[in-house]
């Protein structure tokens, strides 16, 4: 069993709480932390011709922004923590893509923050944490 923990991360408050929890756990277990940020994307969405023409350019910009605004600050904040940290930046359905990251990294645990959706919207659209709990191949910790 590998000793890796995947953290599903965006820059929300819930994700920051989850980060703190994950860091504590990783330290206690001597585990490696894989911080994954997923940009919501469906290959079956509809775009205008103009958006299609500019998609490749926009994708580059989105990846750069996510790297700079989301992942780089976290990596920096964990620099002196003594933890082995790696980051993953991907496009896709959030829960499914996190599952792919888990499989590829061979992690044994996934942690995610619970975002404060209302009961109704979670019921209608599902929540990322909920879908992950259903689909993940490893134990899931949902941090409130």
């Amino acid at each position: 069993m590998s000793n890796k923990i995947v953290l599903g991360y965006d820059d929300s408050e819930a994700a920051k709480t989850a980060l703190a929890f994950a860091v504590g756990l990783a330290k206690a277990q001597g585990a490696e932390l894989v911080i994954a940020h997923v940009l919501e994307w469906s290959p079956y969405s509809f775009l205008t011709p103009e958006e299609i023409g500019e998609r490749h350019k926009r994708r580059g910009e989105e990846l750069k922004r996510a790297e700079e605004a989301v992942l780089a600050p976290v990596r920096k904040s964990l620099e002196d923590s003594g933890l082995t940290v790696s980051t993953e930046l991907k496009y896709g359905h959030i829960a499914e893509t996190l599952c792919d990251v888990i499989k590829q990294s061979g992690a044994s645990h996934v942690i995610i923050g619970r975002t404060g959706h209302s009961a109704l919207s979670s019921r209608l659209f599902g929540s990322v944490a909920g879908s992950l709990a259903q689909a993940a191949p490893v134990p899931v910790t949902i941090v409130p």
Binding site: W41, P43, F46, K90
Partner: peptide, 25 residues
């Protein structure tokens, strides 16, 4: 359906999207 699309290219224009946009024209 995306059977031959590299998952690492997610976020780029998919075959489905190109077809759907051309069709809406």
């Amino acid at each position: 359906k995306g059977d031959y699309s590299d998952p690492n290219d997610a976020g780029e224009v998919s075959h489905f999207q190109a077809l759907a946009t051309a069709l809406s024209g």
